[in-house]
Simulated scan of single mutants.
Amino acid sequence: MPGSSSSSSSARLHKVLAEAGIGSRRKCEEIIQEGRVEVDGEFVTELGTVVDPEKQKITVDGQRIRARRKQYFILNKPVGVVSTNFDQEGRTRVVDLVPQDERLFTIGRLDRQSEGLIIVTNDGELANQLAHPRYGVAKTYHVEVAGMPSPDELKMIQSGVYFAEGFVQAESCKLKRKLKKSAILEIVLREGKNREIRRMLAKVGHKVLKLKRVSIGPLKLGEVPAGAFRELTPSEVKALRAYSDAERAKGAPKRKSAGRRTAGTSNFVPGKKTAKKKPFGPGRKKKKKRNTGGQKTPLVSEARRGQGRIVKQKKASRKKQTRQK
């Protein structure tokens, strides 16, 4: 019976149809409501029906749907390759490096000048779990910067800085290795804004020379060469799901709002207290209203009309006096 399945492969009917390539989720909802879908020989028109495509026969317009095989790849993105699926300039994309017979997309984008671990899949649910900020999945980066950041500067990265779009901070930021004219840092982020690490380090005066992502949650890049890929094992996929579920159960990290700040500016100083504004509510004095004794205050326009009449009367009396003389 539709709606009675509860196995790990169970999902809402419109989602199953969308993943089978029938159409968008909204389009699949319309198809269901039109009575064109059968589950185990019974027509289903109720949205939200839960089915198991591995155990139940699902047809649309009499044609049985094929459940698409989920594919998962780990790839070491080289510098110069773009993460987006659609590039108007025709540059090499991450998905071009993976052989595919179905539409694939990336999880956890990296900018063109960055390199390292990126996941390529056709599993939209897993992509949402790993990429959405509410899950708070940790991503680890090794970053080479010009110069030698001081302990206070590293602390500022971890304490957080303000950007135009909001307050951002690293989960952790520590010195990994010292070089002659540069240093390698290990930075962990829970959410990723556009070029977040580069912009945070620019705030403290250090240019990023090299940026490489080495892990997403429990998944490590390991020894995968630049530009190469491999398929994830079932145990690795299971570990990613379990990790994202656990992080969601803990609760996503709270984000601070930037308020009304000018783009590109920051007044944040670690350890410095800021003045608090007086709260609205019972603790704030209210202005007393004047008691007019029940009489309504005349409108401004009426008062102006009264003044105009007085002026006219004065002019008329002056003319009358002049004539009498």
Rank of each mutant, 00 (worst) to 15 (best):
S10C: 14
V16G: 01
A20T: 06
S24M: 02
R26S: 03
R26N: 09
E38H: 11
D40E: 12
G41K: 13
F43A: 12
T45K: 13
T49Q: 06
V50P: 04
D52Y: 05
K57A: 05
I58S: 03
G62S: 09
Q63H: 11
V82H: 03
T84D: 02
G90S: 12
R93E: 00
R93S: 02
V98W: 01
V98L: 09
E102P: 10
E115L: 06
I119L: 15
I119N: 04
E125L: 14
A127G: 15
N128S: 13
A131M: 13
P133V: 04
R134T: 09
T140S: 09
T140Q: 07
A146G: 12
G147C: 09
S150F: 03
I157L: 14
A170M: 06
E171L: 07
K178E: 09
L179E: 10
L179I: 02
N194M: 07
V204T: 15
E223Q: 08
E223M: 00
V224W: 02
G227I: 04
E231N: 14
E236G: 12
L240W: 00
L240C: 05
A246Y: 01
R261W: 01
A275E: 13
K277R: 14
F280P: 11
P282H: 10
G294L: 06
S301H: 03
Q307Y: 06
I310D: 08
V311A: 13
R323T: 14
